[in-house]
Design a protein around this nucleic acid. Sequence first.
DNA 1: GCCGTTTTCGGCCCGACTGTTTTCAGTCG
Length: 526
Amino acid sequence: MAVQNSEVAQTFNQLADLLEIQGENPFRIRAYRTAARTVMELSQSVSDLVERHEKLYEYPGIGKDLAAKIEEIVHTGHLKALEDVQEHTPKALVDFLKIPSLGPKRVKLLYEKLKIKSLEELEEAAVSKKILKLRGFGEKTRLEIIEGVKKLKQAERRQVLLYEAGETAQHLSSYLKNAPGLQKLAVAGSFRRQKETVGDLDILITAEKADAAMNYFLDYNGIAKVAAKGPTKATVILHSGMQVDLRVVADHSYGAALMYFTGSKAHNIALRAMALKKGLKLNEYGVFKGIKPLPVATEKSIYELLKLPYIEPELRENRGEIEAAQKGELPKLIKITDIHGDLHMHTTESDGRNSLKEMALAAARRGYDYIGITDHSQRVAMAHGLDKKRLLQQMEQIDRLNEELKSITILKSIEVDILEDGKLDLPDDVLAKLDYTVCAVHSYFNLSREKQTARILRAMENPHFHILAHPTGRLIGSREACDLHGLPQHRTITLDEVRCRASPPWLVGESRRYQYFTAVKIAGVF
DNA sequence: GCCGTTTTCGGCCCGACTGTTTTCAGTCG
């Protein structure tokens, strides 16, 4: 059984967590984490690379040592070094790191001085005030730990979907726009990078008087708790549980601060290292030569100073965008204005919320040239999927509507279910009458990799198969991707890619909850 | 553990805030 890249990355991260608690050289720990990231971003499986004797140590952040460790994991399925470290460190200590105010140093102290090695022991030591004996532990920390243990027992820290975070961001932004003396405002962080889920919101403002704006922010009625506040920085927890960080900077630092708070952390570190090599210092206040600030009002001017073109926030993850920028090979990202139509839409015939005509009119108002109607097929009974008879009726309806509406073209389609054996859920004669089909898996997500892949390949062999919808079936935060051979786990799709995949060059539908744009069938998707 | 137009050794991003301390270490982003 081949080892997945994510398993290798997980092993490295586990090792890094444990070494952190043991007080190992922090740079060595960082190397493990960097390597874990690199492995996750590889477009090929490490198993294949090892099998073909590719030089793993030529990838960024992977040297000979880590390459050997990767090979060990591929060959033996585990890492002896991790097991050795695990043997001497209780696993629960790693969970302690998730508690606010507990970092590796304090976890180490708790373990060494008080022999604490489980969540229960930690709770007991906090409640009985034993931990106050330790240097650096006071009453505040004690209460933080009790609260943290409670939360940890309940659930993981909540990550919300991007669009949910967008609603909170919208509320907060419109509130803050009325702050006294407000000049500029941006929601930065992972939200600006448009990550699929967002853990907290980072809001950056410039204002005539920082303290007035800060106080205005702290008066926001959605705040449940103020976790930290200073003259330029505050952290609050909203009633929804979401954390919001506010930073106030001087107007001339806005560009540098926006870049800094947008991240990602890895991208910033890489940029700072580049700046250092040029004899410059980069921080959230600007770019400095010695102590002399250079004029950098915008993010663009900072990139220019580093001899780089502007890098879009969505790409700032230090997974090759800086190298691509240096070579002038940055991908062009999809913009709303690039979208001319939507090929994945439901109506009230199945589980949509609007009628066929309402959908068409709404799309026309958006300026779309075309839409494709893709209600569910009969097998998805929960969504009242269409059988042959109802689909034929809908097609007639579409013909009539196309006559009536001249501003938009409505294409006939269906989201046809891929059955467990790879057959499509409707007979070929009716599929042949459609403009195109969207095919998707809605059941049996847990088949083995071999069976799942064979199932989809078989569906693709059908001459009426055109588009594979939500290819991995992953629901962000609630259902894992199904195991398929050859689909990358995580990546950004660019406009050029969509163009070259789609023939004719249609953009394809997306959903808020699925990770992927619906992929279009081309040779070599798998 | 990685890496090299200061280098094969000696660096490795950097600042705000907190809590505990009595000047600063640890955490966080």
